[in-house]
């Protein structure tokens, strides 16, 4: 059971994020919701990197007797997560700057009032 808790946390974070995006009215909170979804997905990727009894993937300092690859932890999920975090920062910055400009033009952050484009 205990090994499933991180995956439950992943699903819970994605659902919390979706809840914030769908039901919160403040644009900043929507942005926070997207951030939470992103953290959930990143947590998921990091979880996949765990190998029980694995060793660090440094070829020059392998413990004697280890064979490649089953005992070596491949750093791929970590690399993916780092990439995803960097992309996430860019998206977050762009979204917040858009929110700032929208507030200047519309005078509100209520998502229900920011809908001049409809129908």
């Amino acid at each position: 059971m205990i090994e499933y808790i991180p995956f439950i946390a992943v699903v819970a974070m994605i659902l919390i994020g979706l809840y914030a995006v769908v039901f919160r009215r403040n644009l900043i909170k929507i942005v926070i919701g997207i951030s939470i979804i992103e953290s959930g997905v990143n947590l998921f990727l990091i979880m996949l990197g765990y190998r029980e009894g694995g060793v660090a993937p440094i070829f020059t300092s392998l413990p004697p007797g280890t064979t490649y690859p089953p005992e070596m932890v491949l750093p791929v999920p970590q690399a993916l997560t780092l990439t995803s975090i960097v992309i996430g920062v860019a998206v977050l910055a762009l979204m917040l700057s858009l929110v700032m400009h929208i507030y200047r033009k519309y005078g509100t952050l209520d998502v229900r009032k920011i809908r001049r484009l409809k129908e």
Binding site: L18, V21, V22, F23, R24, R25, I30, V111, R112, I114, R115, R116, L117, K118, E119
Partner: peptide, 16 residues
């Protein structure tokens, strides 16, 4: 017309 509310949250609601 009711479906196309123009509300960002509703776009995501349709996705979900």
């Amino acid at each position: 017309r009711k479906m196309h509310t123009g509300n960002t949250s509703d776009y995501i609601l349709w996705f979900v």
